[in-house]
């Protein structure tokens, strides 16, 4: 589905290559500052790569804006949720879903629609609430490639198990889509069919969970 070939960006990404196929659930992990979020932003078009190739279903998307890439089927859940003034949870989810039936996306992330839909997406919401709304806005997309950037961060009350269930559900319901999760959590890595370790802008390790998890433990 997506081929990433020798992608470099500033001095942050240094020749990153891997492919994402339909049905994949890939976890990208690695130390802070290794370039994980930057890589995601390069894929969805927030940042433009300096060299290398990005092929989405065979099409070169390097020159496409993030709007165009979103419309092609790429979706990204930000590590740091964005605050707005005047944009409500309902507005955001309606934009994401393209229709008005948005209750279900909030329920999926464990938020009561009646309590949240009309609230403005600003700092009156807690970090965890903002994060869940951010995740819901991406689940609401009818995308082919979903990227979640540290979805577990700030998720406190809402149990971790629910989050994992959301990803498992998505995978079952949308077998032709792929999910990439940037995460430090072993429980999330365990449901992946592939784990990629990014270090200093390069892929240091890549393979199945069985193969990579023991090596990661050794490194720690």
């Amino acid at each position: 589905m997506l081929q990433i070939k020798g992608v470099s960006y500033k001095s942050i990404l240094k020749g990153v290559s891997f492919s994402i196929n339909a049905g994949d659930l890939i976890v990208i992990t690695g130390p802070n500052g290794s370039g994980k979020s930057t890589l995601a932003k390069c894929i969805v078009g927030i940042e433009k790569i300096d060299s290398g190739e990005l092929l989405f279903k065979g099409e070169d998307i390097r020159e496409k804006s993030c709007t165009e890439r979103a419309r092609l089927g790429l979706a990204y859940s930000f590590q740091q949720p964005i605050h707005f003034k005047g944009v409500t949870v309902r507005d955001l989810l309606m934009i994401a879903a393209g229709n008005e039936k948005v209750d279900k996306y909030l329920k999926k992330v464990g938020l009561e629609p009646e309590l949240y839909l009309d609230r403005e997406i600003n700092s009156s919401l807690s970090g965890g609430e903002l994060k869940r709304i951010e995740i819901a806005s991406v689940i609401a997309r009818k995308a082919e490639l979903y990227i979640f950037d540290e979805p577990e961060a700030g998720i406190d009350i809402w149990s971790f198990g629910n989050l994992i269930k959301v990803f498992k559900d998505m995978r079952k319901r949308q077998p032709n889509s792929a999910i990439v999760i940037i995460s430090h959590q072993e429980r999330i890595m365990k449901i992946a069919n592939r784990i990629i370790l990014l270090k200093d802008g390069k892929i240091a390790l890549s393979g199945s969970a069985d193969k990579v998890l023991p090596q990661l433990e050794k490194m720690q």
């Binding site: 979706a75 964005i82 707005f84 003034k85 944009v87 507005d91 955001l92 934009i95 997309r141």
Partner: peptide, 22 residues
Amino acid sequence: QLIKLMTLGLSRRQAESQIING
């Protein structure tokens, strides 16, 4: 804010007017 809305498929202009109207 613009980028977030653009990653949800809005054009820059659409994103701007959504933010202003809101």
